[in-house]
């Protein structure tokens, strides 16, 4: 049962990710990306990580994509305003994307499946996640917050500069 749900969700996420790349209209691209994020959140729920799923929805679909859509609407971008690229740029893009794909395939070719750890009750709960974040991974957690602070300060500085 869960396997079928997984296949359907994977089909939705890969399909909408491809549509995101292929659609000419930027607004359609954003909407397909939102669908992709939703299906990824559903994947998290299958993995028993409710907190990650809901954070994925709040942060990515609810905040970042709303801002994306906002900027695209504000600039009123549509398929006509997309500038056509020269052939050499297209060839270069195809080559580099193909090489990246090759590297990913190569890295997965030799990989072996990790042993499945036994299910602990409350595995993805907020309580356990908080405990792990604030004990084992405290330094990376705090470093991330400093990163966010510097990004915020940088954007304020850029906005202030006339």
């Amino acid at each position: 049962m869960l396997a079928y749900v997984f296949y359907i969700l994977s089909a939705i996420s890969i399909g909408s990710a491809l549509m995101m790349v292929f659609s000419k209209n930027p607004v359609h691209s954003v909407l397909y990306l939102i669908a992709t994020f939703f299906s990824i959140a559903a994947h998290f729920i299958i993995l028993n990580a409710d907190f990650l799923a809901i954070v994925q929805i709040i942060v990515y679909t609810g905040a970042i994509m709303v801002l994306f859509l906002y900027v695209i609407m504000l600039l009123n971008l549509n398929s006509e305003s997309e500038v056509s690229k020269s052939t050499i740029v297209k060839v270069a893009a195809a080559l580099s994307a193909g090489l990246l794909f090759l590297v990913m395939v190569a890295s997965f070719k030799e990989s072996v499946a990790l042993p499945v750890s036994e299910v602990v009750p409350g595995l993805g709960s907020v309580k356990n996640l908080g405990k792990v974040l604030f004990s084992e991974y405290l330094l990376p957690f705090e470093a991330t917050s400093v990163l966010f602070l510097s990004a915020m300060a940088g954007s304020v500085l850029l906005a202030k500069k006339k």
């Binding site: 409710d50 809901i54 905040a63 907020v126």
Partner: peptide
């Protein structure tokens, strides 16, 4: 167990 966050998710 994440009811409050669910409310915020749907609102957003």
């Amino acid at each position: 167990n994440i009811g409050i966050l669910y409310i915020f998710g749907v609102t957003s």
